[in-house]
Design a binder for these strands. Sequence first.
DNA 1: CGGTTTATTGAAAACCTTCAAAGGCGGTGG
DNA 2: CCACCGCCTTTGAAGGTTTTCAATAAACCG
Lengths: 254, 254
Amino acid sequence: MQDALTRKLESFEELTDADRAALRALVPRLRQVPARTDLIQEGDKPENVHLILDGYACRYKVLPDGQRQIMAFFVPGDFCDLNVFILDQMDHAIGTISPCKTVEIPRHAIEDITAHHPRVTRALMWCALVDEAVLREWLVNIGGRQADQRIAHLFCELLLRLEAVGRVTDNSFPFPFTQTDIADTMGLSDVQVSRSLRELRALGLIHLKRRVLTILDVEQLKAYCGFNPNYLHLRNARWSGRRQVPWLSSVRGE
Amino acid sequence: MQDALTRKLESFEELTDADRAALRALVPRLRQVPARTDLIQEGDKPENVHLILDGYACRYKVLPDGQRQIMAFFVPGDFCDLNVFILDQMDHAIGTISPCKTVEIPRHAIEDITAHHPRVTRALMWCALVDEAVLREWLVNIGGRQADQRIAHLFCELLLRLEAVGRVTDNSFPFPFTQTDIADTMGLSDVQVSRSLRELRALGLIHLKRRVLTILDVEQLKAYCGFNPNYLHLRNARWSGRRQVPWLSSVRGE
DNA sequence: CGGTTTATTGAAAACCTTCAAAGGCGGTGG
DNA sequence: CCACCGCCTTTGAAGGTTTTCAATAAACCG
C-alpha cells in the first residue's frame, strides 16, 4: 500500500531512501466506501488526506437554496484533499460517486513528513498544482463554452486522466455519473445535459450506455470543444516514457 | 521590502530567526508595471514569483476563438503565481489591470528556502490554499448564480479581501476594471454586465463612478447573492486580532 | 416484478447574447 | 480652454440558448 503512494510521488520527484523510509512509516487505512457517501463534510476539520484507489468521487458545495455545485472529479490515483488539509475547516464536502476503495493518511503524518522531507513536499505540491490547473480549466469551460462543448470538454479530460492511470480500453471507460451530476458540474440543468448528450450522440462522437462511455472519435471530439491538454501537464519530463502510472496496477490486486 | 514578505508569512505561521534570515537573504526586484501589461505569458517558463504591492492584476487565458477568461484577480498583498512556479510551463498568463508595483522573487530562491525551511513552506502553502479556495468559489459563482448575483458576489469578495489589507475606506475602493473585464471574469457579455450594474444601482446596493466602487449596503448586498465568507478563511486563529495586515502599510511609503 | 430513480421529450418562459447605434468620459494637442 | 478622438458605457431590439414545468419512457434495484 505505502508502495503505491511512494511510486505515485516518484513519478513526480526523485526520492531518497530516507524519504521512502518516512513514507513507509505511514500507517494508512484502507477503506471501502459505498457510492453516494461523503468522505468529508463541509465544516469538518480535515484529519486525513484521502487517496482514491478505485472508483470516482467529487468535491462539491451546496448553496443555501439547495443548489449543488461540483468542483472536481477524482479518479483512481487522485488525492482528494491534499490541497486543503492545512485549512482549519472544510469549506466544501467530498463525496463518492461510485463505490470507492480509498486510503486515509493522517494529517499529522503528512505534516511530519513535509517538515523533514522537502522532496516529498515538492512531489505533493506538484499533485496539488495539477489539480488546481484542472480547476482553472473548468472555470474556462463553464465561463466560455456552451452546453454541448462543455460536456465534450469534460469527456476529453476524463479520457486523458483515466488513460494516464490505465483505466481506458478502446476509448471506453466507466461512467457512473448521472446526468444530474454532470448538470451540477457544468452549471446546467439536467434537461439540457440530456439534450446535449443527444446532440453528441447524433454527431457520432460518443456512445454512452449502461454507465460506460465510449469516445467514438477522439480527434473530432477534441476539435468540437477546442480541447487543449496542456493544462493537465501530462507530458512533463518526469512523466515521459511511462505509458501508464505503475503504482496503480500494482494496487489493484490488493 | 523583505520585511513585507516576512510579515505576510508570519500572519500565517510563526517563523524562527533562521527562517527570517533566509527570507532576508532574498534579493527581490521591485518593479513598476504599467496597466494592461503581462507579467508572464502563456508558454513561458516561470522564473519568478510575483508579489503585488500596489494595483490590481489578473490571471487569464485566451481561447483559440479570441475569447478571454479571467480566472483570478490579484490585489495588494497577493502572490500571483506561487501556485504555478513549480510547473515547467505556464498554461495561462498573468497581466496587470491597473498600473502595479510588484516584487519579483526568483524561483530558485523560493525553492531553496522551501527545501530548508518547513515553516516558510507551510506559510506559502497557506497562501496558495486560500487562492485555490477563492478559485473554487468562483466556479460556484459562475456555475450557480445569474448575472446580477454573480457580480454582487464578486463585489463582496473584493470588499473583504481589500479590507483585509487596509485598502477600503467607507466601503469604497478603487475599481479599475472595465465592464469587459468583469464580463470576461464572469462568463457574461459586456452588455449584460452593464445591465446588471444598472440593476444593482437601482436597488441602492452600490455606487460605481470614476473607477471607484462604493458598497452602499453591505449586508443587503451579501444577502442579495447569498455571500458566505468562510471560503476566504480570514477568521482563522492565526489571523484573529489583527484588523489589518501590517506589512502592507509599511511598504506603501517605499 | 414492482417501486424508485434516471432519462427523454415538448412547450413556454426566462435569461443572456449579439448587433447596432448613441452617449459619456478622459486624455491629448492645438 | 476647447475640440477632438478613442475607449468605455448605455440602451434598444431581435435572436439564441438555457431553464422550468410537466408528462412519459426507460433503466435500475432489491
